[in-house]
Design a protein around this nucleic acid. Structure first.
Lengths: 346, 346
DNA sequence: CTGTTAGCGCGTTCAG
DNA sequence: CTGAACGCGCTAACAG
């Protein structure tokens, strides 16, 4: 017996009635005789009949599918976003198709094509660090498919966005460093392509300004998230004539790598140099010393993006609203910035 | 300008040629004049033409989509499986549709219908703890859709499976407890519906036997993964005349809850009673005391399941093979079982 | 090399 | 209340 997908035609033949009647029975059409309806339903059940979504999508031009593009799976952040998005999507009756760009612009372009080919009803995107051209995103707009950016947003496109208070969070973590007595605070800044980089940089600058600490250009190092370079940059910082006494890294993996380099160079953390990260990856609490960082509500970010997306989908195109949702973060203080006197674990 | 999906007809009209010619040009058919082909390709590019997968799926009866059903997102295990599956699926040219059953049999039945409606080419499943009837799974077989079970497998169905060496892992962790001097080792066993429960139980029993420790029925507590009951069971164990000096819990969340109860009751871990879990959730290293457990290669499990699935898909149905892949685990020793003398962190 | 026709599974006219 | 006919976007079989 060969595998066979039961169709409307099959059950129409068996019952010796027309396909349209079967279709009506299945879709709960009002004008249909009760007996035939029940007969159809019973047979459908018995034959494990299931509506073919592809055929339906062809007609309705709706796939009930949302797309999500993530740049990487190295940090723990994006998996959490996906979980949140998945749950919210299921709640709203949508499937979720995942694509990862692996931080490659070319792959990201391919990802958008996959989304288009699958006729997604909407797509949520976090860009790669390489992305400077946005034509592959604007396609969605031209085709009437809503887009929501999250985390790594595209400033050039007027779409809804889900972000966190990067500026504020960076301000608070740098303020914390200052309050522990640090005065020469270095910053491994993110790539200028990502707007969160500048938001965090600005938070850093604002904190210095508030506490009347002179900004030193040699302490601000632009960096492209290529982990191999962390060693070079950190060693460079450590050999400065006026060595920094703290380091605020753009994200946790970078901060963790920096900690290894600093330890290897023979400096004590946080006594000689304190280290802070951003995002609160799950490993960040485990390393020695544990890492002070900012926690982001990753799952909520995913869920919020889906909600904005569904909202746009259910709205005629001329009523699309580029709503920007800014979610709250939390400062998590751990050993990498905690003066030796205090010794609690978090 | 309204959103519009460019189709073959559109570009056929603009070029004033037939649809089939356009189709041929797009699919790289050999017999076609170079100029027309180039003209088509150029216009397709310009209009952001993208093949409609739904139309294609209708014809080919292939969706290039795999389904994954997970029972929960509470532990860190299943998200990791999904990541692994997603990467492997993308590599093989498949999309992934995720459904979660939330440990509910009824929801699981619905999940299978979603998979069917979306015409998945294959589906990987981890059952709920409630599932005792398997008709909703055998539907896939009847329709010629390959199924692979992972982690929580269905013994009754002859499909490929991806599991870990539960028996062996349980044996090793109980052996470790014995070697630290523990003699009355309790076990919070998993639900009998899940075969991994009995595999782990058997590993536990085998270790006791090897070291000639009498099995005590009062120390083996069957439990349905309902965390609310952990408190009752553990307190019951603590009030036994012959109190256990160690506890091996079926999974990490259970072990962690047990630790809370034990601490509240005023006992010292691991001195009075040692605790061990299973799976190595990310929190397990963070709690106080950190938890001895077994780590599972979750991502590899997901990837392996996809590989088995793709293998089945590419194979005529009468050549389907119920291959069983058993992946290796690792014993991770932490403070919850480590005698006080040693004090390293892992 | 190209155009015409048919049909994938379904919902939706339009006629009874 | 029911049936026949059409079309969603696409590929394949059959003519030229």
């Amino acid at each position: 017996m060969k595998g066979h997908q039961t169709t409307i035609v099959d059950i129409a033949k068996l019952l010796n009635i027309s396909k349209s009647t079967v279709s009506r029975a299945l879709t709960g059409h009002p004008s249909i005789k009760k007996e035939t309806k029940e007969a159809v339903l019973e047979l459908a059940q018995k034959l494990d009949y299931q509506r073919n979504m592809h055929a339906l999508s062809l007609i309705t031009r709706k796939s009930n599918t949302l797309g999500i593009i993530v740049p990487e799976f190295i940090t723990g952040y994006f998996p959490k976003v996906i979980i949140g998005a998945q749950e919210a999507a299921a709640m709203a009756g949508y499937n979720l198709i995942i694509s990862q760009s692996n931080e490659s612009y070319a792959t990201e372009v391919e990802n958008t094509k996959v989304m288009l080919a699958n006729q997604v009803d909407g797509v949520m995107i976090s860009m790669t660090k390489e992305t400077r051209n946005f034509d592959h995103f604007s396609v969605f707009g031209r085709k009437g498919i809503p887009v929501v950016f999250y985390n790594r947003i595209c400033e050039e496109l007027e779409t809804p966005r889900v972000i966190v208070d990067d500026y504020d969070a960076a301000f608070r973590i740098v303020e914390h460093l200052i309050k522990t007595g640090k005065k020469r605070i270095a910053h491994l800044a993110g790539p200028s392509t990502l707007s969160m980089s500048s938001r965090r940089l600005n938070g850093y600058l604002a904190a210095l300004k508030k506490y009347k600490i002179q900004v030193s250009d040699e302490l601000i190092i632009p960096y492209d998230l290529d982990m191999d370079k962390v060693k070079i940059y950190v060693n460079h910082l450590l050999q400065l004539k006026k060595r920094p006494d703290a380091l605020f890294a753009i994200n946790d993996p970078t901060a963790i790598e920096a900690i290894q380099v600093i330890k290897k160079a023979g400096f004590k953390i946080p006594r000689d140099i304190a280290v802070a990260g951003f995002t609160n990856d799950s490993i960040s609490a485990l390393i020695e010393p544990s890492l002070t960082t900012i926690s982001q509500p990753a799952e909520k970010i995913g869920a919020t993006a889906v909600e904005l997306l569904v909202d746009q989908i259910n709205r005629p195109r001329n009523q699309w609203k580029p709503i920007i949702k800014v979610l709250k973060t939390e400062l998590i203080i751990r050993d990498s910035t905690r003066p030796a006197t205090t010794n609690n674990r978090s």
